[in-house]
Design a protein around this nucleic acid. Sequence first.
DNA 1: GTCTATAAACCGATAGAC
DNA 2: GTCTATCGGTTTATAGAC
Lengths: 199, 199
Amino acid sequence: MPHPAEPPPRGDARAEQRRRTEARILAAASDQFVEAGYERTTIRAIAQAAGVDAGLVMHYFGSKLALFEQVTKGGQLPPAPTGPPGQVAEQILAQLAGSLTTEPVRSLAMLRSMLTHPETTQAFREGTQRFRAQLAAAIPAPDADTRAALISALIMGVVMDRHLLKSGGLDTADPDQIIALLRPVLRTLTTADPPPDPA
Amino acid sequence: MPHPAEPPPRGDARAEQRRRTEARILAAASDQFVEAGYERTTIRAIAQAAGVDAGLVMHYFGSKLALFEQVTKGGQLPPAPTGPPGQVAEQILAQLAGSLTTEPVRSLAMLRSMLTHPETTQAFREGTQRFRAQLAAAIPAPDADTRAALISALIMGVVMDRHLLKSGGLDTADPDQIIALLRPVLRTLTTADPPPDPA
DNA sequence: GTCTATAAACCGATAGAC
DNA sequence: GTCTATCGGTTTATAGAC
């Protein structure tokens, strides 16, 4: 990834240095926010972890909230589960399988502060609403809304337990086993009829 | 103290007055902790909501942490899902039905601060582990541990979305509808293997 | 570009008056 | 039993030196 938008003119050591320290601060901030949440994370701790001064962090990002929003920017729920009704379950399972192995840092930062930081609560709420709406549209059932809400809550609980709570249940389990156990569950929730009647 | 939990003998207006204000403070603290979590809740705000001074709150409960522990004391997950393997699903559904309607204040206070307050994280972790162990013992399957962990995560996600996140999905849904939709899900997770899907 | 010094606000907790 | 006054610590954020 050479230069995405603004290619630094050749030999501009200043801008390059700034870009590096800024990235280092951002990485340190991500770790802290994911680990301790918004309130308990301090600018001082971020600066220390990044090897710089606290004033510099403020000078780059303006405020603690702005830095947090930079970290969580784009950390929404996965795009969309649109598709043919029969394949919705498999699409969700594929997305979840990815979430179980590779940790989406932005999403984890949002998840951690979801319950205690008002702005994050609202952001997550809106993301969940969009996710549910699209998912419900792909479920052919009169109570599709509630089904989509349950699937959303299930995914949230699973990801949260595995990556944040680490209670010893899902964080040590095999992802393939989790997916295999959730397959019939998601089939049940995404299809209308409980009795197996393939006609 | 001769009578710790006993009602004041008779005519002891002082003790009665104290008991009342103490209960008022405790109620205000519960509200604040459930609503805003441990970090954002302040002793001053609790005192103001209770109509007393901040110093009095400290004088009664000693510290903010002690007050929080008083609020969350006994706010664990429901006791135990022991029983015959065929009835485990129904027992869980019955417990969950109760959690959906009547709000367990102590549990909600724990849930709110579960991700951001270290002591609460640990307490919830231990409670979850006990719950999972007992549940897994009642599931006749080689991967009972993972099944129990998924059920635990599902319950957590559902209760959290309904009472805390209030994203508009499960908080507005009918409890009976939620239970009905989760019945086949829990049957699937608590029984080893229904006959493979009809092809 | 980076750091030092400091301002301004808020917190939990303590001591003591009434 | 309840409240006033205050201490000591931590926080974000700002202003300016190097």
